[in-house]
């Protein structure tokens, strides 16, 4: 699980081009949207594509995304339980 979290942080930094942010800067329970990393709705779409492409998880219900994308912790937990690749 720890490895998955680190991998996820790295992918988010790369995909969302988070300049000046390192894996160490992102805490597992930091909110991804709003006050935490400050991601927005376009980033949410990027994360949905990332989940599908890298872990084989299709999110069809937008309401589902709200809880999954709360933090690295919630994302990693969901991916670990549902990944198909």
């Amino acid at each position: 699980m720890e490895d998955l979290k680190i991998e996820l942080k790295g992918k988010i930094i790369e995909v969302l081009n988070l300049e000046d942010i390192t894996v160490e800067d992102i805490q597992d329970n930091d909110p991804l949207f709003g006050d935490g990393l400050g991601l927005d709705s376009i980033d949410a779409l990027e994360l949905i594509v990332l989940m599908d492409k890298d872990y084989g998880i299709k999110l069809s219900d937008p309401k589902e995304g709200r809880s999954i994308f709360q933090s690295i912790e919630t994302m990693a937990t969901y991916i670990a339980a549902n990944r198909t690749k």
Binding site: V15, I42, L45, E46, V49, D52, K53
Partner: peptide
Amino acid sequence: ENNESYLTPTSFI
């Protein structure tokens, strides 16, 4: 690369 799947919005915008 992705066979017209997994298209992300940022580069398109």
